[in-house]
């Protein structure tokens, strides 16, 4: 069988299916694939996956009798969890809908765990309707001060700057999911993809630049609570941490 050069959306499950295998392990455990790809679900684009030849399998059949063949197809799952920046918390949500190949799942908790998806489908949509925000509440009034005080007490009403417009209903967030496109955390893009998935504003690219460093710096400040001015803010600095935060 020819080797497969991976493209976006490929993982061992999808490759195995495309190559006619019912269990991704057949491919994954072939040759040095497992060594080269520690995570069978995350492949770097352009990687080479070695596909084994299909093996003949002999069966002893009973004549004039009904022989049953049981093909064991291993399922492919999809596990998604909607969270806040603090991944331990979930935002208030009124409805969460996952649509993958017409197969829909709904929840209110933000945890979607579909245990049998078509591994060949590489796009899906996740729609989250957030709970209504709290009603607008005015700011506290400045101190009333004392008689003949100087400076005069602040009168908030004297300032005509535009007032904050608060949404009355919950926001709707729609994720266009590129299923199978998450690359391993060992590559730059894989880290950046995870940052993006976690809500970061971050370019997904193969090289690092100021924008990637700023995202990493944010991660370190906000997640790792590290403010180290001499840090390089390189992707590698957060690689292991974000893998656990996103994947585990």
């Amino acid at each position: 069988m020819p080797n497969v050069t991976t493209a976006a959306g490929d993982c061992f499950n999808s490759i195995a299916k495309a190559q006619g295998f019912f269990n991704y392990l057949t491919v994954y455990n072939h040759s040095d694939n497992a060594t080269n790809f520690p995570n069978p679900n995350c492949l770097e684009e352009g990687s080479t996956v070695k596909v084994p030849e299909k093996q003949m399998k002999a069966f002893v059949l009973t004549l004039d009798a009904e022989n049953k063949f049981k093909i064991i197809r291993k399922k492919t799952k999809l596990k998604v969890k909607v969270c806040k920046a603090n991944v331990a918390q979930q935002p208030g949500m009124s409805k969460v809908t996952l649509d993958i190949g017409g197969k829909k799942a709904t929840a209110t908790t933000g945890v979607l765990d579909i245990d049998d998806i078509d591994a060949s489908i590489s796009t899906a949509t996740l729609t989250v309707v957030l709970s209504d925000p709290p009603a607008y509440a005015a700011p506290p009034a400045p101190s009333a001060g004392t008689a003949n005080q100087y400076p005069d007490p602040i009168l908030a009403a004297d300032f005509d700057d535009p007032k904050t417009v608060w949404p009355k209903k919950g926001e709707t967030i729609t994720w266009n999911l590129q299923v199978g496109s998450l690359e391993p955390h060992t590559v730059i893009r894989g880290v950046l993809q995870r940052l993006e998935n976690l809500g970061f504003t971050c370019p997904v690219q193969k090289t690092e630049n100021a924008a990637t460093r700023r995202a990493v710096k944010t991660y370190r400040r906000a997640v790792e609570n590290k403010v180290a001015p001499n840090d390089t803010d390189a992707v590698a600095d957060i690689r292991a941490h974000i893998k656990a935060r996103h994947d585990d």
């Binding site: 499950n13 291993k74 920046a85 996740l126 999911l177 299923v179 809500g199």
Partner: peptide, 27 residues
């Protein structure tokens, strides 16, 4: 306003537990 985002997620093999956490941007 509706928010549209892109996420690259992984399928999870039958014998794996890979989770895709999708964070709602907040600030």
């Amino acid at each position: 306003m509706p928010i549209n985002r892109t996420a690259r997620i992984a399928r999870t093999a039958h014998d794996k537990a890979h989770l895709n956490r999708l964070g709602v941007p907040e600030f």
